[in-house]
């Protein structure tokens, strides 16, 4: 049966084909690099987009692949932001790359501990617990005013130039590349992870947890592992946010932020990694355009789009693109 047979499908080839890089996957990176040269004045916005992509990508790992619905993913974004911020503001450690790694590690630890507890629960209980965890952290940050700056926010961060050379300049040029590099590393990791055996077991858990137990899968540990990875990545996004702005407020832990990242991912499409890219780009740019001009219009629009996406375009933008392409193909043949 190992002999190649033209009529029989080839399982190895099929699985390899899934994992193979496609030419179109170069597109986001080409756009990102092109944007630097074409739109040099928009690099601060570009950095915001990238930060949001990393954050949404981290959510996609748990939501899109493992099926964990979280209403409190900002907990880990915020943990990373405060960790990096406090390291600089209180301990005077301003080297950005190690600061970033520290933020990611702290968020990962918070993710590991909270995930270990929370992921024993399902459904509504889990939903409530994720929500409450983030709000609890927010309240904690509010209470620990001495360290976090409380309601007024954490000030006094100072970061040294990247590699001792590149300052966070007013136009955000250096940090654009920095953020893009962090995104590239996070993306490579996420892509590896979802195509690994581990990644397949996550989809298995999403599709049928009961059966995963019955084929001997240590479901809880699998979930804790991906949750920790996701929290670390969210923490990196938060740390990046802190370094870019040199300022962190309680808002990094807010329900609004947890909601926004969920919306971004749904808008782009879940369980496909690139949904985070599309969703974050569209959302952050539109928000920048509309939210200032007419906040009510923006908010109403987001709400309406969300309702429409859920009712009619469940795959998000990329899902819509997919089915449009499929229909085109069918129409042709």
């Amino acid at each position: 049966m190992n002999a190649p047979d033209r009529s029989a499908p080839d399982p190895h080839g099929f699985l390899r084909g899934r994992e193979r890089w496609r030419p179109v996957e170069a597109l986001p990176w080409l756009i990102a690099i092109g944007a630097f040269f074409a739109l040099p004045d928009y690099m601060i916005l570009g950095t915001q987009v990238i930060t949001m992509i990393i954050f949404a990508l981290s959510l996609d790992l748990i939501l899109g692949y493992a099926g964990i619905v979280s209403l409190g993913h900002a907990a880990y974004f915020g943990a990373g932001a405060y960790a990096t911020g406090m390291l600089s503001a209180h301990l005077g450690w301003g080297e950005p790359i190690s600061g970033l790694l520290f933020g990611g590690a702290v968020a990962g630890l918070v993710g590991f501990v909270s995930g270990w507890v929370l992921l024993r629960y399902h459904g509504l209980t889990l939903l409530m617990l994720t929500l409450a965890t983030a709000i609890m952290l927010q309240e904690l940050a509010n209470v620990l005013e001495v360290w976090t700056g409380g309601f007024d926010g954490l000030l006094g961060m100072e970061f040294t130039p990247l590699f001792g050379l590149f300052e966070n300049d007013l136009w955000g040029h250096a940090y654009y590349w920095y953020a893009l590099a962090v995104l590239a590393i996070c993306f490579l990791f996420a892509r590896r992870l979802v195509h690994s055996a581990f990644g397949r077991t996550l989809v298995g858990i999403r599709e049928n947890t009961r059966r995963m137990h019955a084929i001997g899968s240590p479901v809880h540990w699998r979930l804790v592992t991906v949750y920790t990875a996701s929290a670390t990545m969210a923490g990196l996004a938060g740390a990046l946010f802190a370094e870019i702005n040199a300022y962190v407020t309680l808002d990094v832990l807010s329900f609004a932020r947890s909601g926004a990242v969920l919306i971004v991912l749904i808008l782009g499409g879940t369980g496909r990694l690139y949904g985070a890219f599309v969703g974050a780009t569209v959302y952050v740019i539109l928000e920048d355009e509309l939210a200032k001009a007419s906040p009510e219009f923006w908010e109403f629009g987001v709400g309406l789009v969300l309702v429409l996406v859920v009712l009619f375009f469940r795959g998000g933008l990329l899902g819509g693109l997919d089915s449009a392409a499929r229909r085109l193909k069918e129409a042709r043949s």
Binding site: L15, R16, L193, S196, A197, G199, T201, T225
Partner: peptide, 18 residues
């Protein structure tokens, strides 16, 4: 997936499934 779990491959995070 079932075979991979039996062979204890499921925890492997970085190696492509294929």
């Amino acid at each position: 997936l079932s075979v991979a779990e039996r062979r204890r491959r499921g925890a492997n995070l970085l190696q492509p499934f294929s």
